[in-house]
Design a protein around this nucleic acid. Structure first.
Lengths: 158, 158
DNA sequence: TTGACTTTGACTTATCTTGACCATATTATA
DNA sequence: TATAATATGGTCAAGATAAGTCAAAGTCAA
């Protein structure tokens, strides 16, 4: 069915991702581009259109010698709790709302008690003390990033 | 996974450091360079990017005949580590410095791996995306708060 | 023929590698 | 003992490597 390079690269990456049973794939942009005879930035296009958090992936990368692009799958529970949460993430978060969210995540065992306390304190307005509405946007990005991490990294302590 | 010589040399040195249970490793620059087939100054690069005081290491060296480079891992007094750290907290923190600090706290078991990854990601400039120098001040406050929590909240790991 | 999606490439940023030249300590020699 | 030779390590800037951004151009279906 795939009739363009982007679709082909997408399928390729998803196949590799399935074969790696840890849900992580690491590639070199230029290498992959060469494999599919396209310009390197095409890889960025594929990633930014098909491997977003909406799609259930988190991407990291490093430039320079020995650089890479790493794609991780978001871990799914039956309810797709974290994926759903990330998909509908609000662009602004008040302190009260973020605290409620953190409490909920802790109740559902996504966060340890200590992580929850840490996040709650970090997101207090005295700490994130920039002017509104920037503050609420910043708080949103911070917690979003934290949730992204718990969605992709296993916590060996629990 | 390390795809470049610098990472490999870093891992090598850290392994040697662990094996030597006094937390000290002494090398000869040219010898090490030869071992990894690189120019001697590459060793300096590795040290200056991965074994700084922020990372929790002290490096001494001597030139001339019988010269050496000695890397010492500095473990702070377990009783007062975090309090001392908090007392001398810098008002601004770059991304590189905060990453070094987080890595160090993890090495000394003050942070779990997941907490460390979470904090590192939250403190990235793309996330804390306000203009400098505000960004570095904000990063400082955020990490300060996190460390404060792990200092007061003695979790099950300690 | 318009609009969404894809492809391309010029330019930017980040990180690592290399080498020429510099500084300092030890050892040999006058 | 002074000085020269040798043996190390240090600095820094240029070059190499690799990913990111963005906008212009191309494609294709409705």
């Amino acid at each position: 069915m795939p009739n363009n390079i982007s679709d082909i690269i997408e399928q390729y990456l998803k196949r590799i991702l399935e074969e790696s049973d840890v849900g992580v794939v690491e590639i070199q942009r230029s290498e992959l581009a060469e494999l599919f005879n396209c310009v390197p930035s095409q890889i960025n296009y594929v990633i930014s259109t098909r491997f977003t958090t909406d799609h259930g992936y988190v991407v990291e990368s490093k430039r320079g010698g020995g650089g890479y692009i790493r794609i991780r799958e978001i871990k799914l529970d039956p309810e797709h709790t974290l994926l759903t949460l990330l998909r509908n993430w609000p662009s602004e978060l008040s302190q009260a709302t973020s605290e409620a969210l953190i409490e909920r995540l802790m109740r559902e065992s996504w966060l340890t008690k200590r992580e929850a306390v840490m996040l709650e304190n970090m997101l207090r307005r005295e700490v994130v003390n920039v002017d509104l509405p920037l503050r609420d946007r910043l708080r949103s990005r911070l917690l979003y990033t934290a949730v992204q991490v718990i969605a992709t990294y296993d916590n060996e302590d629990h």
